[in-house]
Nucleic acid binder design. Structure first.
Lengths: 345, 345
DNA sequence: TAATGGCACTCTCGCTTTGAGAGTGCTAAT
DNA sequence: ATTAGCACTCTCAAAGCGAGAGTGCCATTA
């Protein structure tokens, strides 16, 4: 593939920018009139021809304007990557929202999803911070009614899971507290494998709870990500891509079914670092449902301790200029929150 | 308004049923041919004329078929209400899903939303069980890192809230446990007002935590409902009502913004009992965004202790015959779960 | 007297036609 | 190397048209 001349570069970017705004094929004449480049439509035509030849542009029909190809978008995005910081005023607004939000992972996730969706006008997705090797931190047993007991299990990464147990017989709160306290000193800091390897306990209650804890920790360790939060589903509904084609609607379905979404996140980010930013354009041949969509993804958190994902889905002609810096900024922000608040000792 | 003759009743129901399936205005000829009522199209025409006169049907244009009016749907639904049990096989399937789900309010809510959405092919919404007068049950303080402390607060109704606190100085886990234990015996079973009326504590740490607990409980008491779960947003996307009109899309937006949704739930169910079932048709003049939609709503739980809402949103011609029994059944099921598991002593 | 068959009329919807507009490629002139 | 000009192509919106479906009304029937 030959190099682009300087003029072709600026032209290409101009075309894509115009198309992102208007959603309409852009022609040489229109281009020459609206932006005052010192070039006639004929010259532009020639350059457009060249860009089409090289695979950056495409004509929906003979003699309609040009539309960017996936390759074109990819070039466009690669230009975005370097520059593109979020304006300081917006940064401040977002930080402020986090600052005055109710503290707690759950609220931060919701807020992050909401901010991403609003800023980018796309569909956002955020996964809660998650550790691959869950370490035990603390358990609490609270008697609720009869044989029912509420168990709250806290992992070292900050993950919390609660569930309701039904014991074989009624047990006093006092005895529950003793069991919890024994387990807490016994298991502190242990990973799930170490716990499973422990000899069984003499006390039946202790042993029962221990089994359940092991199950729960295993479940947490096995899942590839923390809980998934999304927002902004309705943002894209008015976009022409979604109003018409069924393809795009299926992409939304993908986002509603958590299991497939997890799969997607796992497979695309397996080799992406915290701080890095990844843009999937048109499903990259892998995801049939995403043929008309793009996704901007980033990983956040503290590598080795607790990390999560966040991203934005939109039509392929989404506003990368808004989305990319926002995703990057929110990822940094969440990383800070994680390292400040969640990392256990 | 005059009474409907028996024949008019069956005709009206037949027309509405056909329209719900086909989404097309239904004409006399079509009706006479497809269903073998022993009547000619001409007779049907006369009856349709009468039904139109009485306000149950409407013609989109002169000489197109008839379409039900809101009044028509209302009559149709009133017929549904009495009969309409969910088939035993489906009941069994749903019960089974709940039985083998991970225990815990959070999972039940998610599952309920999912079941409702799938069965009804509409958008579902479920709110977690919520008590108006929150009563203290238990607090737990877990040191995470430095001055950060994870606080888990359990109310008597079963509601759990967690948040991360930043203390003024580093405090040992031991001292945190002592504080928690002191507060647990002091506050057990008290309502938020009683707690606020307590004299302040000598120990600074105790007092700080107490203040935060009060705030948190007040926040829980004030909100009109528990957390909101939805599912099936994409179910309705292919319905013609949503594909075309912007109205219907705005209804979805309503469902995404939790605050307005809470408002809606609060205002519509203020006088509905547990076990009762409410059907809002076309927004009932109150909700502009819902002009083209219907909502089937029910309240579940144990009155006075903990109750929540669940419902389904769909186009006005949604399948009431599937939705109504499903909502009713799931409401009963959740009520049982609540009374079995959540009610404190 | 209630139900029906027949008829004239209306309105939508899908089809084709048509002309304007926008865009293109190519070539000759600057 | 750039540009003006030209012939050509293709889409899109408006207009015209006929088929189909539905209606209301009236005379007839059982």
């Amino acid at each position: 593939m030959t190099e682009l001349t300087e003029r072709q570069k600026t032209l290409l970017i101009l075309i894509i920018r115009d198309y992102i705004e208007s959603a309409q094929p852009v022609g040489s004449k229109r281009l020459a009139e609206h932006y005052n480049i010192g070039l006639s439509s004929a010259t532009i035509r020639n350059e457009m021809g060249a860009l089409t030849e090289m695979g950056y542009l495409r004509q929906p029909h003979t003699s309609a304007g040009r539309v960017p190809t996936e390759e074109g978008y990819r070039y466009f995005v690669s230009q975005m990557m370097n520059q593109a910081e979020l304006p300081a005023s917006i940064q401040a607004t977002i930080s402020h929202q986090f600052y005055q939000a109710r503290p707690g992972v759950e609220h931060w996730m919701t807020l992050a999803a909401s901010v991403l969706a609003n800023q980018s006008q796309g569909v956002s997705v955020v996964t809660a911070p998650h550790t691959e090797k869950a370490k035990y931190k603390h358990v609490e047993l609270i008697s609720t009614q009869g044989r029912q007991v509420l168990m709250v299990l806290v992992m070292a990464g900050g993950e919390v899971s609660q569930q309701i147990l039904t014991l074989a017989e009624r047990v006093s709160q006092e005895r529950l507290s003793q069991t919890a306290s024994r387990l807490n000193s016994l298991l502190a800091g242990l990973a799930v494998d170490a716990i499973a390897a422990l000899p069984s306990r003499a006390d039946t209650l202790d042993q029962d709870i221990l089994t359940i804890i092991t199950q729960d920790m295993r479940r947490t360790s096995e899942s590839v990500s923390g809980e998934i939060y999304t927002d902004g589903l309705t943002n894209v509904l008015s976009e022409p891509e979604f109003a018409e084609s069924d393809d795009a609607r299926r992409a939304l379905k993908l986002f509603e079914e958590r299991s497939t979404l997890q799969d997607l996140l796992a497979r695309t980010t397996i080799n992406s670092n915290v701080g890095g930013l990844q843009v999937l354009i048109g499903g990259e041949g892998e995801w049939e449902e995403l043929r008309q969509c793009s996704i901007v993804l980033a990983r956040y958190g503290v590598p080795g301790m607790a990390t999560g994902m966040l991203g934005v889905l939109g039509p392929m002609r989404m506003s990368y200029a808004r989305t990319i810096p926002t995703v990057r900024f929110v990822a940094r922000l969440l990383s800070d929150l994680v390292s400040d608040n969640i990392v256990g000792e």
